[in-house]
């Protein structure tokens, strides 16, 4: 029995198909995008996050003041004359040293977002490569690589970070090194686990049987299937990085003057709480909380959108 007998329409439809346009398929990414757009909390968070980014990049255009000039008329009398006001265009008031707080928050937002995103990127790149190699190669190499991760994880990272900053001096570069050293560990574990489950799928076996080279298999078959997990984890990692940096800056070890970050601004705001200058705490804290919330909601939305079981 031939195929034509099975389906008498077949040759005809095939002929028709020649004249039809190629149908565009909907990839899993497209499906996920539709689900993500339907998630209201995630979409609102995305808008908020875009506004925060716009604020970080273009916020300085809205004010005539820079973040360095000290207004000597205000210094020493901030609680009385340094309040937020639209009339004198100090929207967020003054900080304790008589500088424009709005410009300071713009600067702090830039630094905090940079720390969060660069830190998460280091973690994602190093962790993904490390985990994918360990998982795909397997055997002894996998064992050695993952035991190293176990050992590195068992060292309290906050302790390492503080020690690094104390020994090598407090600089933003050292902060990246310290955060980068520890943040990729979790990522590599997650990626390795995911790689192990993908590695045993039949489409990998099919690629091996066809004779596709190992680097191509990792690039073409493993990594695209890992991306869902990696993207979700990365969006959850950014706020974690911002939190870590803020905590370190709050302790006074992180970003140093004249640079600033949300953590440093919150720290300064807290120290002057008793003098009636609550806006110095409120503005940086509001940006901090809103951004962290937005990142978490987006991460959550992505996780729901990329979950293949939800299809």
């Amino acid at each position: 029995m031939s195929l034509a007998n099975l389906n008498p329409q077949q040759p005809k439809t095939a002929e028709m198909a020649e004249h039809m346009a190629e149908v565009k398929g909907r990839s899993l990414w497209a499906d996920a995008r539709v689900r993500f757009v339907r998630n209201k909390a995630a979409m609102v968070s995305l808008v908020v996050l875009i506004l925060v980014f716009l604020f970080a990049f273009f916020g300085h255009l809205l004010t005539p003041y820079d973040n360095e000039t000290i207004d000597w008329n205000v210094l020493g009398n901030v609680a009385k004359v340094g309040q937020p006001s639209f009339e004198n265009r100090h929207y967020f008031g003054f900080d304790d040293s008589g500088r424009d707080l709005y410009s300071r928050v713009v600067q702090g937002t830039q630094i905090s977002l940079m720390v969060g995103i660069v830190g998460a990127m280091i973690a994602v790149i190093v962790g993904t490569i490390y985990g994918a190699v360990a998982g795909f190669v397997g055997g002894r190499i996998d064992n050695a690589m993952m035991r190293f991760v176990d050992i590195a994880m068992s060292i309290p990272y906050m302790f390492v970070l503080i020690l690094l900053l104390v020994v090598f001096g407090r600089s933003i570069g050292m902060l990246f090194v310290g955060i980068g050293l520890t943040a990729w560990l979790d990522m590599s574990r997650i990626v390795r686990g995911q790689t192990l489950s993908i590695k045993n799928k039949e489409f990998i076996e099919a690629a091996v049987a066809t004779g596709v080279r190992t680097p191509t298999i990792i690039r073409r078959h493993i990594v695209p299937n890992l991306l869902g997990v990696v993207v979700v984890y990365a969006t959850l990692l950014v706020p974690q990085m911002i939190l870590t940096e803020s905590f370190i800056s709050f302790l006074g070890l992180g970003v140093q003057e004249p640079l600033t970050s949300w953590g440093a601004l919150i720290s300064q705001g807290t120290s002057t709480m008793n003098y009636g200058t609550l806006w110095q705490l409120f503005f940086p804290l509001a940006f901090f909380v809103v951004t962290i919330f937005a990142f978490f909601f987006i991460g959550d939305g992505l996780r729901d959108a990329l979950d293949p079981k939800d299809r």
Binding site: G25, S27, L28, W29, K201, E202, F203, E205, A206, A207, A209, T210, G211, R220, H221, P224, N225, P308
Partner: peptide, 22 residues
């Protein structure tokens, strides 16, 4: 030699990479 010998697998969907077009 691999181009001379090919393989078909048990689970039809699992043997196709979900992120690639057919």
């Amino acid at each position: 030699h691999r181009s001379q010998m090919q393989m078909i697998f048990q689970d039809p969907l699992a043997s196709l990479n979900p992120r690639m077009t057919i």
